[in-house]
Design a protein around this nucleic acid. Structure first.
Lengths: 206, 206
DNA sequence: TGTCCCATATATCAACCCGATATAGGATGG
DNA sequence: CCATCCTATATCGGGTTGATATATGGGACA
């Protein structure tokens, strides 16, 4: 499941340019999947050589020329096959949570700023989802239970995140700044025997 | 905030090998940040040349030789500086949600399998967090409010995800398999004027 | 007792992704 | 009138992912 597959997926909704596809990702996947131009344009080029999409170039009246991509039948089949094969994963990569893990090392003011920004970002994402829901409802594009499920999922998760931050930020702040001193008891790696017989208790650093 | 910084962070808890560091990530960040050996070993090598960590090689009695890394004072300062500079981001990359978005294209049986696997995975992550909490509590490693916050965050978010799936899976399944037909009304990109004057309504494919 | 698998431990590599940057015309707005 | 933004394509360097190679000790099981 790479960006090529995502592009095929986007094109099941109709022909589009690379730019359109990015906008589509931003509008419906922003809270769970993002791809930049650096991935999309090469993906579309490869898909074209594989005959999974066709491209027609429209000379740009006012602006650069546009390349409009269309899914071929082979492309549609390839996409379906991928959907059936893929064992989907779900990954979170959060510098925010890493920073919070080391909250003790940060001045409370900065902690506050970071938490505020996270809350704002969540709010922004929620608005994006609501816009998407409103748009698809307005255009009466049949019922799209998949899209609705994903929107609901995003809202549920982000509401939980937001609430957690609001109810626990005080506790974090109170703890204040108490750095790990660099010279506490040095219970270091060398202290234990190499390839210790009893495993999995402390990962060297305890 | 790259893997180098993560390694510095891990080493604030004590000396460790690359292998230890990966285990540390898996034990405390598995639900929000992961790094593989392909990132960790190069990171440690670079940190060594930058004198932010030192490495001593312990010839392996039984097993390969181990390289035990230790944070230098410069390393500690560099880490603190990074924590203060970084504008932390929070990203989700979920093939699971992408698949769900196209749920209409999948047979219900497969949908069921995917949802079950997602639930299992969430359960597994929750157990990992609880193990981590139990271990840090048992070792009475002072109070680590940051770590506690992160654990709580993970539990709150995953509980919400789990509950959402349980309460909405029936709705998804009922919708059943009703593929986007490939020849509905062809409201295609070429149909609108290039660089349409009214922007942001439909992203070409409506 | 042999054998198979797992955990420890380091390292590398191709493929891929991310973010920034370049280019360029038209519209918008103070 | 100039700054800024939006449309639109494209590329590049640096970083990450996931798989693979190598080596050995310990435990499970027949």
């Amino acid at each position: 499941m790479d960006v090529k597959d995502l592009c095929l997926g986007a094109l099941t909704y109709g022909d589009a340019t690379g730019y359109d596809i990015k906008k589509f990702f931003e509008s419906s996947f922003s809270h769970c999947f993002l791809a930049g131009y650096g991935s999309i344009y090469p993906a579309l080029a490869e898909l074209t050589t594989e005959k999974l999409v066709t491209a027609r170039t429209v000379p740009g009246q006012g602006g650069p020329s546009r390349k409009i991509y269309r899914l071929t039948e082979a492309g549609r089949k390839a996409f379906l096959a991928r959907l059936k094969q893929t064992m989907p994963q779900h990954k979170v990569k959060s510098e925010f949570l890493v920073l919070m893990h080391f909250a003790e090392l940060l001045p409370p003011a900065r902690l506050n700023t970071i938490l505020d920004e996270r809350l704002e970002d969540i709010q922004h994402q929620l608005e994006l989802i609501q816009e998407f829901e409103a748009r698809t409802a307005a255009q009466g594009s049949g019922d799209a239970p998949g899209a609705r499920f994903v929107c609901g999922f995003g809202k549920a998760v982000m509401a939980a995140a937001s609430e957690y931050i609001l109810t626990h930020r005080a506790g974090l702040l109170r703890a204040g700044r108490r750095p790990h001193s660099s010279n506490k008891k040095p219970a270091r790696a060398g202290a234990r025997s190499p390839q210790a017989t009893s495993r999995n208790r402390g990962y060297t650093n305890a």
